[in-house]
Amino acid sequence: MPSLKISAHALHKAGTETRLYEDAYAFDEASGCAAVADGASDAFEAGAWARLLVATFVHAPPVADPEAFFEWLRGPARAWKATLNWNDLPWYAEQKAREVGGLATLLGFRLETPDEEETDASEVTWTAMAVGDACLLHVRKHDVLMRFPVESADAFGTAPPLLSTRLQHDKAMLDSGELRHYGGTCQPGDLFLLATDAMAEWLYNLADLDDMKLGWESVSNLIEEDFEALIEELRTQSIIRNDDVTLLVLRVGEDEEA
C-alpha cells in the first residue's frame, strides 16, 4: 500500500474565538483514512457533533450505502447525546438539543487496501463519501482530476444537506439520496485536498483559473508554510468568505515496501 502523508490546517472565523471553531478533522496515515466536517452554527453543540463524526469515520469508516451509513450514524449520534448533562440543561438548551440537535456536513476519504493478488504497484483505489458541501480535490501535477461532491464553484453558498443527531431527520435525508460517493485510482505524487466549504470554494476558484500562475505544488507549499497568514491575507482581500476554514493535504507517496 502506498504511504500517505497528511498535514492538517485549520483556522476559526475572523472576529470569533478559537473555542467557537465548529469545523473538525481527523486522519490516520496508517489506515489511509481522513475526514473533515463543518458544524452548522445554527445548531446545538455542532462542533462536538462534527468532531464525533470525523473521529468515528477514521476509527471505523462506514460503507457508502444509505442504509449501512444510517446504521453507522447511530454510533456518533448516541455518543453526542451522552455528552449532554440532560438533567441539568436549562429549558432552552434542552429544547434546542431535542428539536435541532447537532448538524454538520461530512466528507470522508480512504485509500483501499489493495487485494494481494491484484496489486498493481503504480495505482491504488481511493473512495470518498460526503453529505453536504465539504469537498475533495484530486490533483495530479497541474491538473485537477476530480472535484467531489460539489460540481462547480458557483454551487457553494446554498443551504447544504446536513447530518443531524436526530436520526429521523437523517433517515429522510439519506432516503432522498443526499449521501454521495465516488471512487478512483491514484498514483504516487498525487495530492488530495479535503476542505470545508469556504476553503473548498477558494480551491475550486483556483482550479477554474485559465492561467494559474502557481502550480498546485506551490499552492500546497504555501498552505503548509503559513496557513494562518495565507487565510488572513485572502480574507483581507475578500477572496475567501469569512468562515471557519479547515484543510487536509494528503500526499500519496511510494509504496512503503518498494
Binding site: 452554527s41 445548531a43 446545538f44 453543540e45 455542532a46 449532554l84 436549562p90 432552552y92 438548551a93 435541532v100
Partner: peptide
Amino acid sequence: LQELVVRCTKSQDEGV
C-alpha cells in the same frame, strides 16, 4: 420569544 431564545442557544456550557 421562545424561538428567538432557542435560536441564540449554541451549547450546553455557554448560556444564550
